[in-house]
Simulated assay, not measured.
Amino acid sequence: AMNVSAFRWGRRAAHQPDFVRGLVAQPGTAAQNAAVVETLDDIIARRVAFLTAYQNAAYATRYADRLAALRKAEARAMPGSTDVTEAAARNLFKLMAIKDEYEVARLYTDGSFAAELGKQFQSYDKLEFHLAPPMMGRRGKDGKPRKSSFGPWMMDGFRLLAAIKGLRGTVFDVFGYSSERRMERQLLAQYEADLELVASALAAGMVEAAAALASVPALIRGYGHVRQASAEKAAGERLRLLDRLAKIPVRPELQAAE
């Protein structure tokens, strides 16, 4: 069922990218849409389709495999429960699908941006983009990133960036050396390690704390100093939950079964 669901969402991502992107970006609206049944398989499959377009199939497989291992561990620890896996599905996606320079370029050049312009304006003289790339590092007195203006030529730059998104995360990724991108990679690596720990140790009685740990990335919001402050808050909550999980006793019969 998972493969069929992923295939269907993959086709939808190819033919209706703006529809799929909207559902993933605003998961809360999916429950209000009668056309979408929010099963765990669909939650995962939509994101697999998105991550395939975002980077490639291997990147999406990394996401799916991590969740498959966690789902198996949760079913073993608490049959019928999917709370931990669902929290991980949403939060792992958030850390893997950051809106970096390559993604911004893809979103501007995949056709949906031009379609939206066509809906809003019958004609326009030129485009001007106001962006705050982390690589430029410009900040105001309040610590927030300062935006710079870019002319119509930026669309050519976006097309080039979208075409070379395969460089993301490699040594040739010039944007990856910024402090913000390094922090994002560290958060992802740490979160994947936490999910691996949960998958290896999850037992009855741990589901609530494990789901809370899997939801920690949701605390990280905003930009600049606001994002930094929320990341510090999330780090503190992560340590508290790891300590809580370590103190939850595992029943002897469960240890024997393992």
Rank of each mutant, 00 (worst) to 15 (best):
D18N: 08
R71P: 04
S215E: 04
Q120Y: 09
G143F: 03
L213M: 09
D125F: 09
A68G: 07
L195A: 02
R71V: 05
K141A: 13
G10W: 03
T39H: 06
I248C: 03
A193D: 11
R185Y: 04
E192A: 00
L245S: 02
A212L: 15
E184A: 15
T61E: 12
A45M: 02
F19W: 14
A64I: 08
F172I: 09
V24D: 14
L197E: 14
D194F: 00
E103C: 01
A209W: 02
G118K: 11
A193I: 02
E128P: 05
E184Q: 15
Q186G: 10
L51N: 01
T29D: 10
R182N: 03
L242H: 14
V207F: 06
Y63W: 04
P17I: 10
S149N: 12
A231K: 01
L242C: 08
E184S: 14
M183N: 12
Y223N: 10
P79L: 12
A214C: 03
L219Y: 05
M206R: 15
E237R: 15
G80P: 00
K94P: 00
V171Y: 02
T85D: 00
Y54L: 06
Q122N: 13
D194T: 02
P133A: 04
N91R: 06
R21W: 09
S81M: 03
A204Q: 14
E180H: 07
R221Y: 07
T39E: 06
A75N: 12
V37A: 13
Y108H: 12
R159I: 05
L23Y: 07
L245K: 01
R181C: 05
L202P: 09
S123D: 12
